[in-house]
Design a protein around this nucleic acid. Structure first.
Length: 486
RNA sequence: GACAAGGUGGCCGAAUGGUUAAGGCGGUAGUCUGCAAAACUAUUUAUUAAGGGUUCGAAUCCCUUCCUUGUCUCCA
């Protein structure tokens, strides 16, 4: 079995992965809050761990991959924030149930990820479906002395906890600095200390989503859902917890504290955090007008987009950089990726059309290319380096082209080794990296192609070349496409 | 302000102490073509943000500064 090394963001070290149960991986990843359209950041998170999921399976692990849906959105009837809550407003104006809104965006999220060939997790639990588990953890924290109730709400006592635990280790924060830096907010008067976080909140009258609990009719706190769902399905500790680096503090720090306080154990053995996404070097924000959803990206439906980008291209583009680096989306970078992906696909298609009867046997050939295969496993084992793996796929692609172009003596090619190389190329490209090539005839340039055909036909008609113009029309009609004469 | 991640050729991006710093895009030339496009082949370019230090040797380790992004507890 391959030895996988993971950059553990809890320790800052690259560590060999050692499973709790031999041959098995339990992985939890923080999923989206489903109150808005998914964007590139959502895709990056899902894609990062899709590759982890795929790779561990490929090398023989049985993987349980849990990714939650946060559908407890604390919807309020009135907008409190400065114009950001259009969706909530919409829910109210259109008299939708909050769960209708959550279901809608869950559907949009899943559909977008599937277009990018991102596999569904093993379990995709919802926060609203685990209220009982969240209440139980809160009760345990109270009885263990790490949480206190005030006016129907329950808070985690961070200051007390930090006396005995290393609170802040994951994010590099120090409790005393946090206490200095935290302003007193009006609503926080209930808390013993400003650094405490909520486990259960009593619902204000305008709150729509609320559930009964031992303390009040209310809703669970902001971090406890992940502790509830990860420990329920994966145990304590489990192997690997992932998410964006924006979640390190306070979210993951709180998870660590909750789990330790409730169970006395560590949450997990390995933490992975992926880096963020920018657009033309700028952060995405609705207020800046550079916020692009996945739907808009795939459709080219945004003023900053020069064209539509196929979900396959977006996937390939994101795999070109390591998950720990920021990704900057730009038209030129995406267009470069689109061409590179197409080239890779062409060479794969070409090698599969080659007549293999002339191939001989060559230990040297076999040895050289086995080395490349071993390097690819080495790159994936080294903290999932998809960029280097793709660089090797390009080298193999050059060989495929050379063979199909008869640029090298075919008798020097080892048939068995080439078959093996093709199989490994397929493994890495399709199974591990989840790359897909454009299928014939389903180009995303179809509309432009139709425009060109239309122009040709118009030209032919202008020249009274009706044989040609009718041929174009008839062929297109046969495909179910109509030509409209102006 | 504090903490965290990043700053590498025209562009995108690998490489975390060891010979000539991957790969792709773009550019250039060639093959193909009636001419193009596409495809293929070859080829071009790096004081590694800046300054200093450690070392036989630094993109990589240390220090200072600058820039980008994230976070600083009731949005998860």
């Amino acid at each position: 079995m391959q030895k996988v090394f993971i950059k553990n963001t809890l320790t800052g070290e690259k560590e060999e992965f050692k499973p709790i149960v031999e041959g098995r991986l339990g992985m939890y990843v923080c999923g989206p809050t489903v109150y808005g359209d998914p964007h590139m950041g959502h895709a990056r998170s899902a894609l990062t761990f899709d590759v982890v999921f795929r790779y561990f399976q490929e090398i023989g692990y049985k993987v349980r991959y849990v990714r939650n849906i946060t559908d407890v959105g604390h919807l309020e009837d009135e907008e409190n924030d400065a114009g950001e809550d259009k969706i909530l407003k919409k829910a109210r104006l259109e008299q939708l149930e909050p769960m209708e809104v959550a279901q809608h965006y869950t559907n949009v999220y899943r559909a977008a990820l599937r277009k990018m060939n991102i596999k569904d997790p093993s379990i995709e639990p919802t926060a609203s479906g685990h209220i009982i588990e969240q209440i139980k953890i809160t009760e345990d924290l109270i009885s263990n002395g790490w949480a206190y109730e005030v006016n129907g709400s329950v808070y985690f006592d961070v200051v007390k906890f930090s006396d005995e635990h290393d609170y802040g280790k994951l994010s590099g924060r120090r409790i005393d600095e946090l206490m200095e830096g935290t302003r007193e907010l009006d609503n926080q008067s209930e808390k013993k200390n400003a650094v405490d976080f909520a486990l259960w909140k009593k619902a204000a009258p305008e709150h729509i989503m609320k559930w009964p609990s031992p303390w009040s009719v209310g809703f669970p706190g902001w971090h406890v859902e992940c502790t509830a769902m990860s420990t329920k399905y994966l145990g304590v500790p489990f192997d690997l917890h992932g998410g964006g680096m924006d979640l390190k503090f306070p979210h993951h720090e709180a998870e660590i504290a909750q789990c330790a306080g409730a169970t006395g154990k560590m949450t997990c053995n390995y933490w992975m955090h992926h880096n963020m996404v920018t657009l033309d070097g700028q952060k995405m924000a609705k207020s800046k007008g550079n916020f692009i959803t996945l739907g808009e990206l795939f459709a080219g439906d945004h003023k900053l987009l020069e064209q539509a980008y196929d979900p396959k291209t977006v996937r390939y583009f994101m795999l070109l950089s390591h998950y720990s680096s920021p990704i900057d989306f730009s038209n030129s970078a995406l267009q470069g990726a689109e061409k590179a992906l197409k080239r890779l696909g062409e060479s794969w298609k070409r090698i599969n059309e080659v007549d293999t009867s002339q191939f001989g046997s060559s230990p040297e050939f076999a040895e050289n290319w086995q080395k490349v295969i071993d390097e690819m496993y080495g790159f994936m084992n080294d903290d999932f380096n998809t960029a280097q793996t793709i660089a090797k796929l390009n080298e193999i692609s050059a060989l495929f082209n050379a063979i199909s172009n008869n640029q090298i003596d075919l008798s020097t090619i080892d048939k068995v080794a080439l078959d093996n190389l093709k199989e490994e190329f397929s493994n890495f490209t399709f199974d591990i990296l989840g790359i897909e090539f454009e299928e014939d005839g389903s180009s995303n340039n179809q509309n432009e192609l139709l425009d060109i055909l239309g122009e040709v036909r118009a030209q032919a008609r202008a020249e009274k070349n009706y044989v040609l113009s009718d041929l174009i029309r008839d062929k297109l009609n046969a495909l179910g496409l109509e030509i409209q004469d102006k």
